[in-house]
Computed example of a mutant assay.
Amino acid sequence: MLRLMLILVLLVIIVVGLIFIHFEQEFHRDVHLALQQNKAQTGDLLLEKDLEHLPPPVQRYLRFVGVVNQPKVKNIRIVFKGQMRDKGKDWFPFTSEQYNGFEKYTRLFFMKGKMFGLTVPGYHAYQNKNASMRIKLFGLFPIVSVQGNELFKAETVTIFNDMCLLAPATLIDSRIRWETIDDTTARASFTNEGVSIQATLYFNARGQLVNFVSDDRYAVSDMKRYRFSTPITDYKNFNGINVISFGEAVWHYPDGEFVYGKFELQEIVYNVEPF
């Protein structure tokens, strides 16, 4: 009897593992297609003249990060570790792997969170005029499954936030409309698939982006729109480009600010070749 029970436990572990792998393979299949659609062009450099239409603080930012005379960015791979939480709940640690495409806007974010000693995978996909968020216990039982127009708009804010913080070379994109507020502040309107969002970017005297604020993002917990910001506290040089190494994600609820995410950049690679 004991041997039979051990065999059954082993089979359950194997089945759960295969389901987890299948969930992650869906992410990798989407990544493969996204990289095919967002290939970099050899020798296509970002030049000083490409900055001319940008507000002065955005121009200084792109010079600070070091993207001038470097290849234009068509896609990116990002690895984070950090902590996340829902309001009223404890922090849980996570690691994430993410690919973004900027020719045909795509954001594919696969997270592995640790909850109650278990690994809980989550997949956020923004592609083909759709956005979805799925979190599954063991990669099998849905905990969160959300999609729809509100999520697409929310994730349009998220991908633009990624562009500003992690892929600043993409800010020359003609699909962004800029407005100069003052010497350290600029406002942007970003449009994808007919959906427009706005954000205000704040810079310091060194040219560093220090905060991103938007009122167009929806919280998944209640699908209501709240002010969203990502204050940045540290920069680091990754392969010759100065980008954020630590930042927070903040909801500005009516009863006060709530930090729901802490992100520490581990790896970043621009213009990944299709695999």
Rank of each mutant, 00 (worst) to 15 (best):
F246M: 11
R187N: 07
E264P: 00
S214R: 00
D234H: 13
E267P: 02
F109K: 03
E155K: 01
K112A: 10
L151T: 02
F152K: 14
E193Y: 09
H22K: 11
S189F: 12
I268P: 10
N237G: 04
N192A: 12
K87F: 13
D162E: 14
F23A: 09
I13D: 01
T233D: 08
L47V: 04
M163F: 10
P254T: 01
M223P: 10
A188G: 06
I19V: 14
K72P: 09
V243C: 10
H53G: 06
V269P: 00
Q266S: 07
Y226K: 10
P55Q: 13
M84G: 12
E97I: 11
L209A: 06
E24D: 11
P254A: 00
E257W: 02
G256V: 08
M84F: 12
V15D: 11
S245E: 13
G88H: 10
I159S: 07
G139W: 12
R85E: 05
R227N: 05
D234C: 03
R175E: 12
G256Y: 06
L18D: 04
F160H: 13
A205G: 00
E150T: 12
V195L: 08
E48H: 12
V259N: 09
T191Y: 07
I159D: 09
L201K: 03
G43E: 01
H28S: 06
I159P: 01
K87M: 07
M111T: 13
E264T: 12
S96C: 05
R134H: 07
F141M: 13
D222P: 06
P57W: 09
H28N: 09
E103Y: 08
T95M: 08
S145E: 15
F116I: 07
V213S: 08
E48V: 05
Y253P: 00
I19P: 02
G148M: 03
Y99E: 05
T191E: 04
S96D: 06
P55R: 10
D183R: 06
V58P: 10
F203C: 01
I78K: 02
I244D: 00
R3Y: 09
S229W: 14
V220L: 15
Q147E: 15
D30R: 12
